[in-house]
């Protein structure tokens, strides 16, 4: 009885403290709501999808304020050291850690995708115990190239979802699609999106039209698309003070018209 007489006031005080903490926390979360809302929309580092299976990889330390992006850089240096040793698992885990720690840096996304898509299949082929790259059958090689390229494309698609206005990820995805998957319609689609995104590069639209006209055998559709694209460029205010770029788009259109226009009657000698 004596013990319970001592413990109960002790326990009661702690229970009251916890209740006070809960009530105050709920009330104060309303005060912090505007800052929290702004953080969640503008600081994407802590979105839940990036937090799968990363505890134990130093990410908790990385979450400490600004040190997060330094740790991302260090992870990237570590990924390079694994890359030199052709260590697929090591380099990939470090590259993904760098992306998780600093997802706002497009450099990590694009270079990780390039390493996965272009290098890692070769490492695996070279490491096959029954003979390395000379003895491995072509069909096996093609399967591995495809497998790794698809993994890289998944990463680039995630990158595109995060940076929809940046044309770089579209361009790298298009190149990977042609070089490793030989999927021309998919390549063309990436170039089209690169041409139509906010921070477009001038050559993406031309490449799309060329693929559509030459590789896919749709010259009229290609020409029609580029004419419409050129009209949109002329209407875009960002190009008002860029006569150099407008000139390039115009020259591209003229060149495409020369290539893809049906030959006018009477001009066949030309």
């Amino acid at each position: 009885m004596k013990d319970s007489g001592i413990i109960w006031p002790w326990l009661r005080r702690r229970i009251i403290a916890v209740v006070m903490l809960c009530v105050a926390g709920c009330a104060l979360s309303l005060v912090g709501q505007p800052a929290a809302d702004w953080q969640r929309t503008h600081q994407p580092a802590f979105r839940s999808e990036e937090l799968k299976g990363i505890v134990g990889q130093g990410v908790l330390l990385g979450m400490f304020g600004g040190l997060r992006s330094i740790m991302a850089d260090m992870s990237w240096v570590r990924a390079y050291s694994y890359w030199e040793k052709r260590d697929r698992a090591g380099s990939e885990s470090m590259m993904r850690l760098a992306i998780i720690l600093d997802p706002g840096n497009i450099y990590f996304w694009i270079n990780a995708a390039n390493i996965i898509g272009y290098d890692q299949a070769h490492w695996e082929i070279a490491a096959r115990e029954y003979g390395g790259r000379i003895k491995v059958q072509d069909s096996v090689k093609q399967t591995l190239y495809r497998e790794y390229a698809e993994n890289a494309l998944k990463l680039l698609d995630d990158c595109i979802a995060r940076f929809p206005d940046d044309s770089r990820a579209y361009i790298y995805a298009a190149q990977l699609t042609r070089n490793k998957l030989n999927n021309i319609p998919m390549e063309a689609e990436y170039y089209r999106r690169a041409a139509e995104c906010k921070n477009r590069v001038w050559f993406a639209g031309r490449i799309y039209a060329m693929i559509l006209g030459e590789d896919m055998g749709k010259p009229e559709e290609a020409l029609e698309w580029y004419r419409d694209y050129y009209r949109r460029i002329l209407a875009d205010k960002r190009y008002e003070n860029r006569p150099d770029l407008r000139q390039i788009f115009q020259e591209n259109l003229e060149d495409l018209e020369e290539r893809f226009s049906p030959v006018p009657v009477g001009d066949s000698k030309k």
Binding site: G65, G66, L67, S69
Partner: peptide, 21 residues
């Protein structure tokens, strides 16, 4: 050791990290 970020951000990150850690 800076990859793809602006240099000012890289330097600032060190300071921000040091402040909190």
């Amino acid at each position: 050791f800076n990859f793809g970020q602006s240099e000012l951000k890289f330097i600032a990150d060190f300071g921000f990290g040091a402040m909190f850690l």
